[in-house]
Each structure stands twice: as structure tokens, then as C-alpha cells.
Design a protein around this nucleic acid. Structure first.
Lengths: 165, 165
DNA sequence: CTGCATGCAAACCCTTTGCATTGGG
DNA sequence: CCCAATGCAAAGGGTTTGCATGCAG
């Protein structure tokens, strides 16, 4: 499928699911909730509460910070989005399906101290394999149901490795 | 070696390292810093700034919240402890690596903040599987030869999970 | 119409900062 | 002695709450 089309269908599908879910659970589809769903479906990152609030204000929508937080909490409680608290004091919000993005992975060189790669550069198969294996084992052995992770790997990067020879 | 003895040596060793490091870097060994180092060396969890402050107050030590934060920041900057921000808005503080090879896995509960398990409690098969998979993939994709790792997982522990129901 | 959802402002929690004072080296 | 380190209180960010008003169903 052509990526663009898939994307649009994906987004629209996601929004429809959200709306259906809200109604099913007896919540009203207010103007503000529509705007927030619209914004979230655009997959603009990062997106914490303040990002959303400022973006909607910029478009002259009638919105308050409290509503943004309340809506995000509501969507979280319905498991339609995933609240992630990692690395800073600000929570950000992801799609629950995007589990691999629910992690922060940093690769750092021991020698030059440079960040070889972070989340964005790592391909998903690494993350998924890592997370799946870990989560299953950890739940089985330690009874912890994993929500977030932060992973630092360090070692020798390619440049320093070549210098070494 | 008898566990108790090993433990005392471990703790004392850690404290000595800290004190040496402070002096080496020209920082004063004040009464407050001593108390905080004492507390940290006891490996009581959880231990965020407020835990430390309240514990020392309870013992009638002269201490202010600002000092606790400033000391924790100082120790972090000297890499003597590791500040972790995950799962909640409260930072907590761990040893940078409980093993000599600087590889560590920490499991923390999002809700109660308790350390569910650290390196010592995790069985090796989890660690090996996790890290082997990751290391191979990361070398292939990012050309980083992994030497060390630090992994923080957070989620819902068994106790909080049961309370929730 | 009814009561859930909203905006606003104030409250809250955790953390940082400014400032006069203290005490370690 | 001197300046780094402290306690206190106030300010700072992010988030939540109380309350009168608004609007979806």
C-alpha cells in the first residue's frame, strides 16, 4: 500500500476508534475533545500537555489547560493513549500500540562520550525484541508489569574502535 | 564469605569511595553530607529527596530540603549516585552500578516507588538473553560494541497491582 | 432540560533559587 | 579566617482541583 494512503487510513481509523470508544463509555464528544483527538491523530511529536494546549490556542480554539489534562487522563484511562513519564518531569503521550516508542534507549561511546544513537535511530526490531523478552521474563520472575523503560548502553563506537587499532 | 560481613565491607567501601571523591574534588565533608551518605549507604528503598529529608529530620539532624537536593545533585554530578526520572514526577536515586562491571538492571514500581528488584535479584538468564540480543543487534545496526549497560524498567508491582483491583 | 464538561484561578507537589548566616579546612 | 555550604522562604515548573457557567445529548 502507498505509505501516504495507509497513513491517512491509519489516522482516520484511529480517530474513529477513539470516537466510538468515547460514546460507548457514555462520554460526550465535545468540541475540545474533537480538537485534541485531531491533534493527537496527526502524530506530531513531542506532544505533552503544553504542546497540545499551545497548538490549539494558536488556532484560536477555546481551550483551557485543565481540559487538556482531563482529556489526556480520560484517553489514558480508556487505554486509547499511553502516558509516559520518563527522563524529565513532563509527561508525554503515545499511542499504546507504539510500545517500542515507550522506551528511551541511549547508546553512548565509552571513549569519546558521544551519543552514538538514541531512540529515533534505533530500528524497531531491536527495541521490540528487547522489550518483549524483557517484559515477559520480568513479569514472570519479579511480578512487575512493565510500563516504561530507560536503557543506556555504552561501549566502543566505530570511530574510536578504528583509532584503537 | 558470610553475607553480613560482605555487606558491611561493601557499604563501608562505598562510603569511603564517596568521601575520597568529595575531598579529591575539593568539596567539604559537612555534617549534612555525612548524614546523607550514611543514609544512602544503607540501601534503604525507595529513596527520593523527601524520603531522605524526612528520615534525617526524624533523627533530629539539622537539615534542609535544599541541602538534600543540592547534595544529591552533587553526588550525581560526580557519578557517585544515579538520578533516575521514570514513571512518576519524583526523581529517585540509585547506585550507578551494583556490579563491578557496571551493568545493572533496576525494576521500580511507578506507584509506590519501591525498588522491586535490582541486579542482584534478577536471574542471569534474563540479563544474558536481554543483553545478548540487544548487543548483537546494536552492533549490527549502530556499530557500537557494548561494554556496559544500565537498564531501568518501571511499571506496576504485585502489591500495587492487587490494591488496584 | 439535565448533568457532564468546561475555563479560570487557586492549590498542589516536587524542585530550584536568592540571601543572610554558619562552619569546615 | 574565608568562602563554600547551609536553612529558610519564596519562586518556579508541571499538574490537579473547586466552582460557577456552558453546552451535548
Amino acid at each position: 500500500m502507498i505509505p501516504e494512503i495507509e497513513n491517512i487510513i491509519g489516522k482516520e481509523g484511529r480517530k474513529k476508534t477513539w470516537v466510538k470508544n468515547l460514546k460507548k463509555n457514555g462520554y460526550k464528544l465535545t468540541e475540545q475533545r474533537k480538537e485534541i483527538l485531531d491533534f493527537l491523530s496527526k502524530e506530531i511529536y513531542p506532544r505533552n500537555a503544553d504542546d497540545i494546549y499551545r497548538e490549539l490556542k494558536k488556532k484560536n480554539h477555546r481551550i483551557g489547560m485543565a481540559t487538556v489534562y482531563r482529556t489526556l487522563d480520560l484517553l489514558s484511562s480508556l487505554k486509547l493513549i499511553h502516558k509516559v513519564n520518563i527522563g524529565s518531569n513532563k509527561a508525554f503521550y503515545l499511542f499504546p500500540g507504539d510500545t517500542e516508542d515507550n522506551t528511551a534507549i541511549y547508546l553512548v561511546c565509552d571513549k569519546c562520550g558521544k551519543l552514538v544513537s538514541n531512540n529515533k535511530c534505533l530500528n524497531n526490531s531491536i527495541k521490540i525484541r528487547l522489550v518483549d523478552n524483557a517484559a515477559k521474563n520480568i513479569f514472570k520472575n519479579c511480578r512487575l508489569r512493565i510500563n516504561h523503560f530507560q536503557i543506556f548502553f555504552s561501549g566502543l563506537c566505530e570511530i574510536c574502535s578504528n583509532k584503537h587499532k
